[in-house]
Design a protein around this nucleic acid. Structure first.
Lengths: 182, 182
DNA sequence: TATTGTTATACTCTATAACTATA
DNA sequence: TATAGTTATAGAGTATAACAATA
């Protein structure tokens, strides 16, 4: 599938360590349609949760994609680098730089792949296992903390709905554009 | 409030027009703790919804922050540029470039502020009103489409929970880090 | 002295494309 | 001919910092 004929990055505001875009902080401001859009709510929620993620990993060099990569390597030992680019949906070069960083941090090592000499086999180092264990605990704790406004039941419902949102039903159908009107 | 002493952008993967990171597409891959993290689910959901957003605005130069800016200006006519940077949580320079683009697109104009000669008063142009009307309709339609896996009731519940997640309860408290254990 | 807008600069993430070595 | 990894390059978004005009 080809990417749309657009500039690569479409100006999607990226949450930062401070937690940013769409945060409602200005009193007396009207948000119009944004109050009804799932997209706006998801963005705000993501920012909120990312704030806690960054607290969780404070002091480490770990970012969300690096964390996800570590998890994948831990859960699928020996997997090739391509899996990262597939699962995270980034370009091969992106997966490269993620693994480069993890290798530089001595958390991951590339070994020759036993079956395919083109591939590299990814493994956590001993330090990687130790570090990830701590990270997982912290991230999970802060992830729970991020949803402190919700009851346990509400959090479960939220996870359920988000999971359902992303289910395979995903046909590539699309509603009619506004041009079709009248 | 001061920013944390971190590099500005922390490598958070940004969803692109194609919809990217954390998308589960590789069969037989284990995701470990990510299956339980709100952060992972939110990211996937956001990517999904952003895909539809980009379909909605196809053919225009509009991005999510540009769209949000247009909404803000429409809903709060005459507001100053600072509101954009506050609400979207971006730096002043970021709001600058957003307004610059909207002005270049002839959708917004900067007028002298009646009360404060340092400020500019932001207004939609006639074209801006026309264009935004179409954009709003399309975005709302595609935003609904993005949640096609959910019933109407489920979508409402989801919005409710996301809203609740981001409520003012937000104390700046944080759970204990893993170092605190034992 | 603080604030609004502005400009210049640098950094990060990500994509594309070309290259290599294998298959 | 296709695939896994690699490398180099370029584009977009955002932050920081310094500046001018105004408060």
């Amino acid at each position: 599938m080809k990417a749309r004929s657009r500039p690569t990055q479409r100006g999607i505001p990226t949450p930062t360590a401070r937690g940013e875009a769409f945060r409602i902080v200005a009193p007396g401001v009207n948000y119009g349609i944004m109050n009804r859009l799932l997209g706006s709510h998801l963005r705000r929620a993501q920012i909120l949760v990312y704030e806690d993620f960054f607290k969780a990993v404070e002091g480490s060099e770990i970012t969300p994609p690096l964390f996800a990569s570590l998890i994948l390597i831990k859960e699928n030992p020996g997997m090739s680098q391509g899996v990262i680019s597939t699962v995270l949906g980034i370009a091969k070069s992106g997966a490269m730089s993620l693994v480069d960083k993890l290798e530089a941090l001595k958390l991951v090592e590339r070994r020759p792949h036993p079956e395919n000499r083109r591939s590299k086999s990814l493994h956590l180092t001993a330090a990687g296992h130790r570090e990830l264990k701590l990270l997982e605990e912290a991230v999970e704790k802060f992830d729970l903390h991020a949803s402190r406004n919700l009851t346990k039941q509400e959090r479960e419902t939220l996870l359920l709905l988000l999971r359902k949102l992303d289910l395979p039903t995903r046909t590539d159908s699309a509603p009619s554009r506004s041009e079709d009107r009248d």
